[in-house]
């Protein structure tokens, strides 16, 4: 896999260190601000945000409606906003439609709700095939869709960022919103997986 990180290569580590040192020296960056950004995206912004949005949409029909009409505002209701989240759009999976999100040109991704993208989302394999063979890509994730289900691939080529609302699994009627949020996975919100009900 050519897109995989090469841990033996000390090259980029030295270069990034040089870059940061130089920009700090020139007064162009504040290392404390850099630390804060790292902390934000490593520990605070991630798919748990999106999972809360999805769980709320499952529980609250009025919220679901707002989310589908204007995801940026509906997501902001839960306190999530920021870079790569200025124009959010939620697309809903149903028995008849399955949505899948990709960015073929780079790796655009809805940061405020999903955090930073995983390596597979940024991989050349995913970027190239998600548009031309989405059913094959889904099979790579162990998801086989019946032919009668319409596959909709969303290529994030502009500034719109997409969040898939997966289907609520059967057997979860008695679960609370928090419990539901706990079973919603990142992959299901990109559209490469379904949400599974917890095994009892």
């Amino acid at each position: 896999m050519s897109d995989h990180h090469n841990t033996d290569d000390s090259g980029p580590a030295a270069r990034v260190k040089a870059l940061e040192a130089l920009l700090t020296e020139k007064g162009l960056i504040d290392p404390a601000a850099i630390d804060a950004i790292v902390d934000t995206y490593e520990t605070r912004v991630g798919p748990r945000n999106g999972a809360r949005v999805v769980a709320k949409a499952w529980m609250d029909p009025a919220y679901r409606k707002r989310l589908l009409a204007d995801a940026t505002s509906a997501v902001a209701e839960l306190g999530f906003a920021g870079p790569e989240g200025g124009h959010l759009v939620a697309v809903e999976n149903t028995d008849r439609v399955h949505n899948l999100v990709v960015c073929t040109l780079c790796s655009c991704y809805p940061w405020p709700v999903l955090g930073l993208p995983p390596v597979w989302y940024k991989s050349f394999a995913y970027r190239s095939r998600a548009v031309s063979d989405p059913r094959g890509v889904l099979e790579d994730f162990g998801l086989e869709l019946p032919r009668e289900v319409e596959v909709r691939v969303w290529d994030s080529s502009a500034e719109i960022r997409y969040l898939v609302i997966p289907q609520r699994p059967k057997g979860t009627a008695k679960m609370s919103e928090d419990e539901l949020a706990a079973i919603v996975t990142r992959d299901s919100m990109v559209g490469v997986a379904k949400v599974e009900a917890p095994r009892t």
Binding site: Y41, T104, L105, P118, W120, S128, R129, S132, D140
Partner: peptide, 19 residues
């Protein structure tokens, strides 16, 4: 501009991937 290219193989997700 990779959309539609072939030859990059299967998509391989990493288990418990760090940020």
């Amino acid at each position: 501009d990779m959309g539609g290219m072939d030859g990059f193989g299967a998509v391989v997700p990493e288990k418990n991937e760090p940020v």
